[in-house]
Design a protein around this nucleic acid. Structure first.
Lengths: 156, 156
DNA sequence: ACAATAAAGTACAACGATGAACAAAAATCA
DNA sequence: TGATTTTTGTTCATCGTTGTACTTTATTGT
């Protein structure tokens, strides 16, 4: 089991991925600090942005998009409803599902938060050529696709 | 405050970054599942890999490298010590610091875990040309640098 | 040398995320 | 139709992370 010849940090793709993970972690932390002024946290923003795009989505669908468990939504959404950011209405046709909507205040907070997030991304990513960003996005989307395929197989 | 003309998802760098974050999240989850067979979790692996590379590091230095708080290390490391993966020895010269070392078992587990992680990364990233991976790594390292600079300024 | 300050590590309370067990409502199918 | 299975959402116990306050040890400044 002598790995001296193939330590991970001699492995170019390994090093690349470590850098990706680190950058993500730092971005997340930085975003979290910037969002403090709106009194929301990054998980709330993820939810808000999805409701902004996909109004009337169910908790289940939202959880799937965010790659978290349903119970997570059951914990967070009632809080956000009490804060007046979102509203949950029962579906007429299927009484199991709760459909989610932004309140006017929620929409306002979301827009402010999206400005903060976009500014941060722009500020940090603008030194990178746009072609490089696009190429990166394509790589990442392929990676996402591969990993999600595997998840489906696991659930058999 | 009409954002209809500049929604974030029309913003190329925003879309790119969302893809990066999503890919990271999925990788983390996939790695977590694969590590279950070694009965460790991803935070433990981060620690083990750092001790593998930087033997004798202090808890403080380790926390800084991992971008987490000191208290986090104070919670995790005693657990890992009890499991026999690591050892903590007091520094002779500075009685405040505890220096961290892998036990033989810890080294063994680390090597197995690194194989798992490297295989996962290789499997998922191998469709991407190596030049693209290298370019991505360089971008990410620049991003890391920018964000860390800002952190230092904040701490003034 | 002595006081004040800084640094390393710990303890603890608060919060977020998770998975399992559960209730209610559909969907399936015999 | 009636029984079984699936789906949606909730509850709860557990675990990891964080920030704050605290102890001990070094360092700094006078």
């Amino acid at each position: 089991m002598n790995k001296n010849q193939s330590l991970p940090w001699d492995h170019p793709r390994f090093r690349s991925w470590i850098a990706v993970a680190r950058a993500c972690q730092l971005m997340q932390q930085s975003l979290g600090r910037s969002l403090a002024e709106l009194e929301i946290k990054t998980p709330h923003l993820d939810i808000l942005i999805n409701l902004y795009r996909f109004e009337g989505i169910s908790q289940q669908e939202l959880a799937r998009k965010l790659l978290v468990g349903r119970s997570n939504m059951s914990m967070l959404l009632p809080q956000m409803e009490k804060r007046g950011l979102i509203e949950r209405r029962g579906d007429e046709k299927d009484k199991r599902v709760l459909r989610l909507f932004l309140t006017p205040e929620g929409r306002e907070v979301t827009e402010k938060a999206m400005v903060i997030q976009t500014d941060l991304i722009e500020r940090v990513l603008s030194p990178e050529p746009i072609e490089q960003c696009m190429a990166m996005a394509e790589s990442m989307e392929r990676i996402i696709h591969v990993l999600q395929q595997e998840d489906l197989v696991d659930e058999d």
